[in-house]
Design a protein around this nucleic acid. Structure first.
Length: 199
DNA sequence: TGCAAACCATAAC
DNA sequence: GTTATGGTTTGCA
């Protein structure tokens, strides 16, 4: 039996689906209904679940981690994600995305280069990311550094990235399962698209 | 810039 | 098996 929790923190709703201290899905959005529906969409079709009102201690801690990602704090705690039920390639892409350091971003194509497969396949997995925003799919943009897409809306994607500015100036590579992933400072994208989002 | 064609893992039939 | 579907990329006018 899976439990679904949701909580409002700083005017944003965060949600979590877990069982036995394993996390099957996370989500965030502007209202509770959206969040719960978003969670259920990614659960296995036949999963049994209950919607709980009071978060367990485990759930509350995890929800706070989600919030810290949302507000743009660099991450130190790691959550126990349940990945086994997902296709192998999907797992690889999610893990690689998780490796993108705070303050950096990567591209669909760069991830494809690192783990194999093609950019569109990576985009598909981002679009269905079960662990938003914990697996930072907002840090994946197009190869020309424009934003690409985002399920929560491009404005949110921009805002998330703008809170992660660290002042880095150069690209680098990080080790991921299967190869090396090229990453770039978030500023690359912010500079490119800021005129679209600033008032 | 803008458009067309190639690309690739999944899910749905 | 086959097909449809993208949060893409690249090349070329």
């Amino acid at each position: 039996m899976m439990q679904i929790y949701s909580i409002n923190l700083g005017n944003v709703w965060f949600g979590l689906a877990c069982a036995k201290q394993h996390i099957y899905a996370t989500y965030f959005g502007e209202n509770q209904q959206t969040v719960i529906r978003g969670l259920m969409r990614t659960l296995p079709f036949d999963a049994q679940f209950e919607v709980c009102t009071e978060p367990s201690e485990f759930a509350r801690d995890a929800l706070l981690v989600l919030q810290s990602v949302y507000v743009g704090q660099s991450q130190k705690s790691s959550l126990p994600l349940a990945l086994e039920h997902l296709p192998a390639y999907t797992q690889q892409v999610l893990k690689a995305t998780k490796q993108i350091p705070f303050g950096y971003l990567s591209s669909y194509g760069a991830i494809a280069d690192a783990v194999g497969g093609g950019p569109r396949a990576v985009g598909n997995i981002m679009a269905n990311n079960p662990f938003s925003p914990y697996v930072p799919c907002h840090r994946v943009v197009k190869s020309d550094f424009t934003l690409g897409g985002y399920s929560g809306g491009l404005k949110i994607k921009y805002q998330l990235l703008s809170r992660e500015k660290c002042g880095f100036t150069g690209e680098r590579f990080v080790d991921v399962d299967g190869g090396q992933l090229q990453v770039f400072p978030v500023e690359f994208t912010l500079k490119k698209v800021e005129k679209l989002f600033l008032p």
